[in-house]
Design a protein around this nucleic acid. Structure first.
Lengths: 155, 155
DNA sequence: GTAATTCCTCACCTTAAGTTGAGGTCAAGC
DNA sequence: GCTTGACCTCAACTTAAGGTGAGGAATTAC
């Protein structure tokens, strides 16, 4: 089951709803830092469940693993985070969410004035060259969320 | 340059801002259907520019290629689409956008009551089992937009 | 003390939406 | 009439976020 106050990966998976492989993957990406038992098995703290749950929610909102890592990096590594620790993160998180919503709303409004009228005729159309359109992503059009205000390097 | 009233792929790329390879890829996925010159080179109609531009916008809003294909399939294949043709599409499009915005807003509101308070303590938290959480996607957490009301099979 | 679970690592597979490059043709300018 | 640039196909590579399975070790249960 667990090792002295710690949780095995399977327990954590059951409690978070994540798959075991996903949790291992997150460890590889630096999102969680379980300790190891003498036999080499991962041992998680209870607070890691919270971390992992946060990852789940953040992903639903569209953050990438790297962005989430960036947010989580402000949490204390070896101490159970306090309410204040989480509060800081959730503020940053909320800001991102607001930005994403705002962008979608702007796009919708342009759509109303643009495709809505049937013009779609280039140059004239506000949607073709919106300030939001990231032209320099390198690999061409990707997912919407790639074009939305990326975390600008910091948390 | 062009072949008798038609446009070469490079021209289309220049006018839409898409890469040549992306346009070829879209043809492979059935989003455009250029004709061929006697020499085997693609020949596009002017109306294909509009189609391709639509693809660009739809992608920014987060639709997948398949969803876009589904929308475009209601356009006439070999006749230049009318304003009414585009109007129908844009209506469906707007609906999707509205749904996506609504979902993000619901998530934000839950966030305010949940992470905002620092609870994040599973079971109790509205964010862990939201009606919006797609549990059956098979491969685990993906991008947000994969969890948002997919095009339900039709256009 | 052994059997059944659970866990470990490592390598390869998956999807989406393309990009890149090789090897070879088409078309256009002079 | 040939050279240059644009185009062709096809296969392999890319990123993100994991999943899957092999082969083997650690724990737990009886």
């Amino acid at each position: 089951m667990a090792v002295q106050k710690g949780l095995a990966i399977g327990d954590v998976a059951a409690r978070t709803g994540l798959s075991v492989s996903a949790i291992r993957f997150y460890e590889g990406r630096g999102l969680v830092h379980p300790e190891r038992s003498s036999g080499g098995q991962r041992v998680f703290l209870r607070s890691d469940i919270r971390r992992l749950s946060f990852i789940l929610i953040a992903q639903q909102i569209g953050l990438t693993i790297e962005e989430i890592a960036s947010l989580l990096s402000s949490l204390p590594e070896r101490r159970t985070p306090t309410k204040a620790d989480w509060g800081r993160i959730s503020k940053a998180f909320r800001t991102m969410l607001d930005e994403r919503i705002a962008l979608m709303e702007r796009t919708r409004d342009k759509l109303d004035g643009c495709i809505g009228c049937g013009c779609l005729s280039l140059k004239k159309c506000a949607l073709y060259n919106p300030e939001d359109r990231a032209r320099s992503l390198g690999t061409g059009p990707r997912f919407l969320l790639e074009n939305i205000s990326r975390v600008s390097g910091d948390a």
